[in-house]
Design a protein around this nucleic acid. Structure first.
Lengths: 213, 213
DNA sequence: TGTAATGTTTACCAACCGGTCAAATTATCA
DNA sequence: TGATAATTTGACCGGTTGGTAAACATTACA
């Protein structure tokens, strides 16, 4: 009998886990570099070191691979925002949020580009995630920031646009890496630009959010 | 005789100008939404209301269309940075730069996404522009900012990362529009988010760059 | 060990895609 | 107006792409 995909939902064998892992890793590599439409199953198969039909044995369609990848990565991607703590010191919380986001841009640029590609092209596959879990989480943290501002702990500012500003400035170093490198030139070959960025951004946001007399 | 593309370089007829205009407009629409690889000539042809071979009569290849589009748009896109004036008041200059960039994100989001798509996927077609004209312009303006900082007119900060921060925060509202809308929800249906963003960003950068005692 | 389920591959298909060609149509201008 | 050049189109081509069918190989397990 051939009931591969149906059986999978019941119990996963060692082989299944290994292969699905390898496929998703390869899919991340390819999708993040070329976007959904720009990527081909053959490319992913080659990176994964498997044949195309073999990939399609584990994921019925290209879309299914993409979806599985999104689902797996989205949670991790939002972790830094989740750690945002209402009880902590506001300035320290914002500072460490920036730092964590920058570390992710440095260490997981493919994940960042995966979402950037997706959102840039109208988010055809993740609309629900944006309007659901993402919005919910941001609403919650925005409320925290608003409370801080009301209590006079930080300057009065629009919490949503603050979050957007932190997202955009930090993810910029992953998504637009080529541009950043091109502008900075050869002398910033290593990871030094991330430290420079951290210094600049922490200062910008901390000073920019200081309560003005 | 059929010498279409050769003749074009000598003098352009009314029809040629009109059609090339229509094609590039359609190309902007399609390329900005799907990236280079994700776009097809058929899509562009349909948007332009012309047949595919007709398009290829004016632009020999898909790449030629893309290149012509990039060349046409890049100059306009860098205009706000060019207007950055060394003689002006530093805070006012930065403030109006932010404002102009935000206006462009609002009024020309397709142009922004065109470049975002390109850079995100490794800038395969605009590498030269990034390392040449763009870097040159940024170097020049970075020097201006550095001089301001040295003269104590603004806080001491890395001028390159300041420019990156302004780019990323403003272009975010064009490139990640879907996400911004999803998070803000229906209540921000109109262009109000741009005014909120302007208020927030101007204040963030102005206060963040104030000279600290 | 045998056998049924799981995993892999080869060969293939229909749709799509970038691009060509030659014929047909339209504009230009002497 | 007529001839010549410029423009437009339909038919087509070879290569690619997402996906399938079925034969073959391997694993798990009674």
């Amino acid at each position: 009998m051939v009931l591969p995909r149906a059986a999978k939902t019941q119990r996963r064998t060692r082989i299944q886990e290994e292969k699905e892992e390898r496929i998703l890793e390869a899919a991340l590599e390819v999708f993040s570099a070329s976007g959904f439409r720009g990527s081909t199953i053959d490319q992913i198969a080659e990176v994964a070191g498997m044949s195309k039909p073999n990939l399609l044995y584990y994921f019925r369609t290209k879309e299914a691979m993409h979806r599985a990848l999104i689902d797996r990565v989205l949670d991790t991607w939002l972790d830094p925002l989740r750690e945002f703590n209402a009880e902590g010191n506001p300035v320290a919380e914002i500072r460490s949020y920036i730092r964590r986001k920058l570390e992710m841009a440095r260490d997981f640029p493919r994940e960042s580009r995966l979402f950037a590609n997706e959102v840039l092209q109208g988010a055809p596959h993740i609309e629900d995630e944006l309007k659901g879990p993402l919005k919910q989480l941001v609403d919650e943290k925005a409320e925290v920031i608003r409370a801080w501002a009301k209590a006079g702990k930080i300057a009065n500012c629009d919490p949503y646009h603050l979050i957007f500003a932190i997202w955009s400035t930090t993810q910029h170093y992953a998504d637009f890496d080529v541009q950043v490198r091109a502008v900075l030139g050869q002398e910033h070959a290593g990871d030094g630009r991330f430290e420079d960025a951290a210094r600049f951004l922490e200062r910008l946001f901390v000073d920019g959010l200081q309560v003005r007399e």
